[in-house]
Simulated assay, not measured.
Amino acid sequence: MSFRGKRKDGEGLASDENEDHAPPNKVSKISSAVDSDDSDDVVVCEISKNRRVSVRNWNGKIWVDIREFYVKDGKQLPGKKGISLSLDQV
């Protein structure tokens, strides 16, 4: 039987990566050139070749985005496999 909906018990989490792994490969901080306010800062961590975690402030809330990326025409673009969570949901 197929299960669709919210999972509360941790089923379906990626088990191919251990929690004891080395620190993230890449961390960068992107900020708006026009506005030097901290509300526009974005922190991006690359957790594998095609997966990234980003933390950003959007509409007055802090969001954590975990997403897979793909390469098209030499650019890395976000795929539809991923999730955005507010701090309440994390």
Rank of each mutant, 00 (worst) to 15 (best):
K72C: 10
S39Y: 03
Q89G: 04
N50E: 07
D38F: 11
S54D: 08
K6C: 11
S48Q: 04
S84T: 15
D20P: 09
K6E: 14
E46S: 15
N50Q: 05
K81T: 14
P23G: 10
V44P: 12
D73V: 05
S2F: 08
N18F: 04
R51P: 12
D65P: 09
G79Q: 01
S2I: 04
N57Y: 00
V64K: 08
I47D: 12
D16C: 05
F69V: 01
Q76R: 06
G5W: 02
P23L: 08
S2P: 13
D20H: 07
L87K: 02
I30F: 09
I30L: 13
G79S: 14
K81V: 12
S39P: 10
Q89A: 09
E68D: 15
G10V: 01
Y70L: 04
V27G: 12
N50W: 04
I62G: 05
P78S: 07
G12Q: 01
R4E: 08
K61D: 14
E19H: 10
L87Y: 00
K29T: 13
P24M: 05
W63C: 09
I62A: 09
K61H: 11
D65E: 15
R67E: 08
I47T: 13
E19N: 07
V55K: 00
K75R: 11
D88A: 03
A14K: 07
K26T: 13
K80E: 14
D35F: 06
D41F: 00
S2H: 00
Q76T: 12
R67N: 13
K49D: 10
S48G: 08
E19Q: 07
K72F: 03
G5T: 02
V64Y: 10
K61M: 09
N18M: 07
G79N: 06
V34R: 15
D37N: 11
L13K: 03
W58H: 15
D35A: 08
M1Q: 11
I62Y: 06
I30E: 12
